[in-house]
Each structure stands twice: as C-alpha cells, then as structure tokens.
Design a binder for these strands. Structure first.
Lengths: 226, 226, 226, 226
DNA sequence: GATGAATGAGTGTTCATTCAT
DNA sequence: CATGAATGAACACTCATTCAT
C-alpha cells in the first residue's frame, strides 16, 4: 500500500522533473545558458524558485541533465537504427545518417543547446558536450573501418575523416536549425549522403538514397514530413 | 617635430592596444568570454582596470575587436592565396584550403575563440561570428559553382555542400586545436583535401596534393612545420 | 482564504517598503543623496543589498519615491487645512501657514531632503523637486489674487511676491531644521504670519494669530508642542 | 631683476588660476558639482589634467575657492554700497538690496553654484555655503535692529525676520536665474523692496524706490539694464 | 612647467542559492 | 511539499588623483 503511494509520488516527481527540464531546454535554446536566469526557467515552468531547487541542485545540474537527455535520445536512435543492421552498406549509411539527423530535427531545442548555446561556457560543459558529439565520430570511425576493409573505399586517415563527417553533419544541421539553410530536411539528408558516399567511393543511385531516407522518415519521423 | 612625437605616442598606444587584445584573446580562449573578468584580462596584460577602459569602452567591445582581428587575418590570407590564382583546380583548391587552415593553426587563441569560446553568448556575438564564418561558405559556394560548370563534379545542392565543407574544415581544426586529433597539421590538410576532392569527382594524386601543401607552408607558414 | 494570505503578504511588503524608505530618508537627510551608498541604506534598514533591489529598481527610484511621499504629505496637509475654509482671511492665512510648516516640522528628514539634500544633483531630481515646491507658490498666488481683489492689500507683482513668501517660509524652516534658528516652532509660525500679514496690509492682533496657530497645533500636531 | 621675472610669472599663474576658476564655475553652474568631472573642467579651460592639479590640490578645493570668490564679490559689493551710508533709511534699504541682487545677477554662474548646484553634497560645502549666505542675514539683523529702535517698525523677532528676508531674496533670485520668473531684474528688486518696506512699516513712494534702484544700476551695473 | 597615460578604490547592480513560513 | 523573500559574493565600470616623460 505504502509502496503504491510512494510509487505514485515518484512518478509525479519524475513527470514534474521532465516538465522543468523541457521548460529549461526551451529557454536555454532561445537565450542561451548564460542569459537564462533561474527565474526565466521557473516562469516558463510555472513553478517557484524553491521548487526548482528541490528538483535540481543548481543551474549547472539542469544543463548537465539536459545533456543526458540528449545523450539518451541519440543513443536510443542509434541503437534503434542499428537494430536492423542491413548488409547493404548504402542502406546502412543512409539509414543511420537519416536517424541521426532526424533525432536532432525532431528535438530542435536540444539540438540547438548541444550545437550552439552551450559552447564556450566552461570546461565541465565543454567536456560533457564533446563526449556526446564524439559518439557520432566513434560510430563513424567504426563504419569507415568496416568500409575500408570490405569496400575498399580508400580512406587514408580514418581518424580525421570521421571527425570531418561528424562536423559536416552537425554544421549543416545547425545552419538548418538557424534557418540559414532554407530547405526541407530531406534535401539536407540526401545531400549529405550523396556527398559522403561519393567521397567514400561507393556507387549509389539517387533513387535508392531517397527510398532509404523515405523509409526511415515514414517509419519513425512522420511529423518531419509536413 | 610635434608630428613625430604624436606619431610615436600613437604607435605606442596601438602597440599597447594590440598587447591587451592579445592578452584578452589568451584568457578568452582559455576560460571563455563569460568566465573571463576584466580583472583576468588586466592581470594577464599587466595593466590596471582603468587602463583597460582607456583602450576599450567595455567588455563587449574587446571581443568584437578580437573578431575584427580574426576577420582581417582570414580575409588577408584569402586574398593572399587568391592573388596567385592558378588555372589548375586541384592546386587552387589545395592552396586555399591550406591557407585557410594555416591562418587558424597559426593563431590558435583567435581560432579557439571564434570556433568555440564565443558561441551561445548573445545575439550580437552570434551574428558577428556567423558573419565571419560565412565568408568561408560563400567562398566555397563560388568555387563549387565554378567546378560544377567547368569540371562537371556533379554537386546537386551547392548551398548545402558549401556549408558541409566549411563545417568539416572548422570541426577538424577545432579537434586539432583541442588536441583530440593528435596529428600534424599537414595530415589534417591533406586528408581534408583528398576527401573533398574525391567527393567533388576530381582526379588527383597524393603527391601533387602534398606538393601544393608544402609550397604554401614553405612560403608562408614555416613556423608550422616544426 | 488565499486572498487573505496574499493580502497579508502585500501588507507586509508595503510595511517593509515604508521601512526602507524611512531608512533611506534618514541617511539621505544626513549625508545627502550622493554620499549615501546603497550599502548605507541597507545597513540603516538592516536588510541585504539584494532585498533593497527587490523593493526598488535603483538608487534614483528611492529618492523619487521619497519625493512622492513628501508630495503626498504636503498635499494632504493642504487639502486638510483647506477643507475647513474660513471666511476670515487672517484665520485662513494663519491656518494654512501653520499646516504647511507643521507638516515639514513633523517630517524633518523628508523636509531636509527636499529643501537641502536633493539640490544640485541632476535635472531629473531638480525638476521633481521644483514641481513639489512650486505647489506652495501656486497656492500663494491664488491667495494673493484673492486678497488683492477682496482686501485691497496692494501687491503690485503677485508672481514675484508669491515666490518671495514661499522661499521665506522654506528658508526659515531650513534654518530651524538645522538648529541655526534656536526657537520653538510656534515662534517661527507666528513671526512668519505677522511679518507677511503686515506686508499684505492686513490688520491683525497677535492674540488672534496665536489662537489660530494653537488651534491647528492642538488639533493635528500635538507632538510638536513638546 | 629676478624679482621682476618672478613677479611676472606670479601674475601669469594667478591669471591662469582665475581662468580655470571661471571655467570650473561655468561647468559647475551647468552640470552641478557632482556631475562635473575634472576632465569637464580641463576641457572647458583648455588645459591638461596635470595642469589642473598644479593649481588646485583636488576637486573640493576648486569649489571652496569658487566660494571664496563669491564671498569676496558680495563682501566688496556690500562694503561698496555701505561706503556711502545714507541717513535716509529707504534709500539705504533699497540701495543695499539692489547691490546685493545685482552682484548675483551679474555673476549668474557663481550665484547658481551658491544657491543651487552646491547644496546637499557634504558637510564641508554646506558649512562654507551657509557661512556665505549668513552674511546677508547678519547684515539684515543689524539693519532691523537699527530700524526697530529708530523707526519703530515693530518687528518682534529680528532673528527670524532677518532669515525670512534673506531667503526671500535668494529664493526670488534663484527663480529668476532659472528663468521661472520671466521679468527684468528691476521688477525683482522693486517688488522685493516694496514688499519688505511695507512689512517693516516704513512709508515709501514707488517713485523714490525706482529712483534709488536706477541710481545704483546706472552707477555700477549698466550691463544689467540691457 | 605641461602633459595625459596609468592607477585602483569605490559604487551600483545582478542573480544563483538558501530557508523560514 | 511549495513558496518567494532574503542573502551577499561577484562584476563591470567610473573618475579623482598621481607621476614619468
């Protein structure tokens, strides 16, 4: 009996924590971490300052938890897309690229915080942020190694190339989020895939690429098709 | 006579302004704009707070002037490398890539501020920063247009591709500056060039690429050859 | 219920606001606006700096609110004394003179700020201050106009005379507040009344004047009779 | 020989001191003591900051010296007008009133500093200022004592009345300097004289008053007749 | 003697964090 | 458990004063 009640309150707490996290992410993505005050967050979340501090120990912690949230999101997306590992390299490449981009396109606030608004503040954040972004690089490194041995794509420096691809992706997404690239998300994904497949010496047809992208979008990100 | 004296003091002032700018850049690149206090800058520059304010009107202004400094540096580097415009596309591409990267490699603090430490602070800085970075994108857009018509490199979306290349460069440099990419600058440049030339459907030989890179390094950036 | 609680906190806030206002007035009247620091005020009010800024937006604002306080006090005093408008000119003149003086005698700090400590600081304060003092002049102008038509007191320049009377009053009060005029407040009022009544060609008897003054003092300002 | 040279440089120094004093008075009278910076003064005087400090030890000192200047002016004016002491009370009263007012009308900047712009700053200034203003009160006290014994003007409290008259004069001048009293200086003097003569029970004719005022103006203050 | 660059104490203001109610 | 008033350390910036040239 007691357990059920405490379970219920636990759930309630978690829900509220999530709500505050979302509110904070909204404000951070607009004003940036520095220019956002605790009052801004509590106003957005319609709670009191005191409440905020019963859910988070300080301002730093909420950004770190937002990072965790983002981290979880991209981890889940990655594992989701890798669950159905295809033997077709092109499909695999396109599918994972699409998943990675969509996860950020779907969570614009989180993406903006990760890619722009949390930079240059302090070492702690910089490390956490780097850690999250590095996952993409590590994933790509493994992929490139695989491609190099199995498909002779002839990449001489996998270390550098994986960083190169990672940042090209994040840079393009950032520009798209800022609406400096005024096109739809499919063009973004398609261009990125074809550009890099060419560089990786892998033959592809535009139709296939588009088909693979559509498959992912239809299955998981219908809301991005608007 | 009077002229000579006032000229001398003018020169002295400018020298001191430069010294403060350098000191500020050093601290900003380490701690970031926000966590850097005026006292940090004046300590680094071994001057008094009052002195700082006789050279700069406020804290914002010094970052903006650092941006201008960076902007001028990259502009000059660009015009320098384009002065000797080659008809050889590969040489042109490699040369300008090398120049762009070297200018940042040579001015690590400025680069770190531009690429990392000045992000997510406020709109004013964000716009200035974007403006500076965008020059690279615009340069690449023109280059890609030229390549598309003259060399049939088959880039379908020049807008997106130029952003892609820009951020791949900046991302790789940032990682190298942070020493997360532990290789020498030549490897960085060479990998970037070969990767993108492949993507752009342009045939090259590794020897040529390395020769072109060496030419630029020998001519302008000997200090980077360590 | 909620209403009662919020009402109570509202009242508490207002009380504290008043306390800070009083503390600030005390310090301002001693050290002047300029030489008073926010710390001086918060020390006097036994609050923290942060608290001060949750009640007032800045240092300027608290002086302006003190001005408003003074303004309201003298306005209320004026309307109070004019409520019982007498057809007897001598009584009316004496009564309003007494009220005006007593309001300042009763609120020494506020009077000192208005008459001495807020002068010569800046345009904003100067205008506010002038506005408050001018009310007395305007009141006197109307009175003189009335006396001139009804009582043939033969004032040739009402504009100048009303300023003359106003500043004679404020000057005498200021000297009395500074304890450079070491007499009791009744002497002050009585001398001012008889002097000006003589100048205004109005016959009076010292007994009547004293009686009228006493009436006001007994009714409203017993604490000044010490 | 040496003496002559040192005399000449002494004279030069004194002239420059006077020029700086005048420049400071100009700025103080416009912006007030507080809002005037040393730079403001040196700009107005076209000298360097260092020069300022070779003539005055600090900012306080220059205001004190301005006070001395004002003090000397009014002392000289007073002694000038009392030199030709008339046995005619009306002439004496009118003449000294005219002199007192004209000295301030002629030196508007000094008057503004004394009456408005130097108030409420600190004890030191307040005392100095009070001292200067008090001279008028003391002069009037003596005059009233004389009138009371010789002319039975029936002033009961000379102490208070002399303060009253003093501040009525200064108040009217201040309003005239601020251009809130838009009339010519003769109206000011004439109104003040007739008002107070009436209060002092002394018979006069408007013609005589005006004649006495004109005499002083014609003799010493022609420039005020514009 | 004149200059004005350099100094640094001092001030108003902000805002993350605490804690009594 | 929620509230928001209270706290005070920290910072950007000013300006009277000094002193090397």
């Amino acid at each position: 009996m007691d357990n059920i009640i405490s379970r219920k309150t636990e759930d309630k707490k978690e829900l509220k924590r999530q709500a505050i996290l979302k509110a904070a992410a909204d404000v951070f993505s607009k004003k940036g971490y520095i220019e956002t005050s605790i009052k801004d967050i509590t106003n957005e979340a319609s709670i009191s300052v005191g409440s905020f501090y019963s859910y988070f120990n300080n301002k730093e912690e909420i950004l770190l938890q937002i990072f965790d949230e983002i981290s979880n999101m991209s981890m889940n997306a990655a594992s989701e897309s890798s669950k159905a590992l295809k033997d077709n390299v092109i499909e695999q490449f396109t599918t994972s690229m699409t998943s990675a981009i969509c996860i950020y396109a779907k969570n614009k606030e989180f993406a903006k915080i990760l890619f722009v608004k949390s930079m240059g503040i302090n070492e702690l954040f910089e490390n956490k942020r780097t850690e999250i972004l590095d996952r993409t690089t590590i994933y790509l490194k493994k992929l490139l190694e695989h491609l190099n041995t199995k498909h002779l794509c002839g990449i001489d420096n996998i270390e550098i190339s994986s960083v190169l691809i990672t940042h090209s992706i994040f840079g393009v997404i950032t520009n798209w989020l800022d609406e400096r690239l005024k096109c739809n998300i499919k063009d973004i994904i398609s261009s990125l895939c074809t550009y890099h497949l060419k560089a990786l010496n892998i033959d592809y047809t535009a139709e296939n690429i588009n088909k693979y992208i559509d498959n992912v979008l239809e299955a998981y990100y219908k809301e991005l098709l608007n």
